Amino acid sequence: MEPAIRNEVRQRAGNRCEYCRLRQEDEEESPFHIEHIIAQQHGGTDAQENLALACSWCNAVKGPNLSSIDPDSGELTRLYHPRKDLWEDHFRREGPYILGLTAVGRTTAWLLRFNDTDNLAQRHLLLELGELD
């Protein structure tokens, strides 16, 4: 992938993970990834509308998944799509927690384990330091 495309994806995302909203500057030891929203193995391309900036955690746990099971309804549900969905429509942050507001939000938050112990601890620390907006 061309460096210009990587830079454009980073700028569009404001240097934040497009899934959990972590800032790259809060994760300096682990550079964020340019992620295929729809994995290439599922027909996804390198087109800008299929690329998102993702922290190492979100990229690793999302993998090639396009959907999962909504933890509330038990229904197969698509994941959040950073190019087609608005984050605020599907998620809300309460303190260090990221809550899913919709089936898409709940499913994505569950699959990407937004509220696992380590992620909560990191967001709690960032809140205490006044560095989480």
Rank of each mutant, 00 (worst) to 15 (best):
Q41W: 08
N59D: 10
Q24S: 06
A54W: 07
A60H: 12
L22V: 01
L22T: 01
A52C: 01
G43H: 08
A52F: 04
P64T: 14
G43P: 06
A39G: 08
A60G: 13
L53I: 10
Q24G: 02
L53S: 00
P64D: 14
L51C: 04
P31S: 02
P31C: 01
S67P: 08
C58R: 01
L53D: 01
H36I: 06
K62Y: 10
L76M: 14
A39Y: 00
R21M: 04
N59Y: 08
S30V: 04
D70Q: 06
S30H: 09
C55K: 04
W57D: 09
V61C: 12
G43E: 03
I38K: 10
I37Q: 03
D26Y: 02
H36W: 05
R23E: 09
R23L: 12
L22Q: 00
S30F: 06
S67R: 15
H33A: 10
R23W: 10
L76A: 13
E27D: 14
S68K: 11
C20F: 00
S56Y: 11
P64Y: 11
D72P: 11
G74P: 01
E35Y: 03
F32C: 01
A39V: 09
A39N: 04
I37M: 04
P31T: 01
S68F: 12
Q40F: 07
D70T: 05
S67Y: 13
E27I: 01
R21S: 00
G63Y: 11
N50A: 05
L76W: 13
S56Q: 15
H33Y: 06
T77G: 05
S67K: 14
D72L: 15
L53R: 00
D26W: 08
S73V: 05
N59Q: 07
A54H: 05
E75S: 13
H36L: 00
N65E: 14
G43N: 06
Q40D: 09
N50Q: 07
D26Q: 02
E27M: 06
S56V: 15
E75I: 13
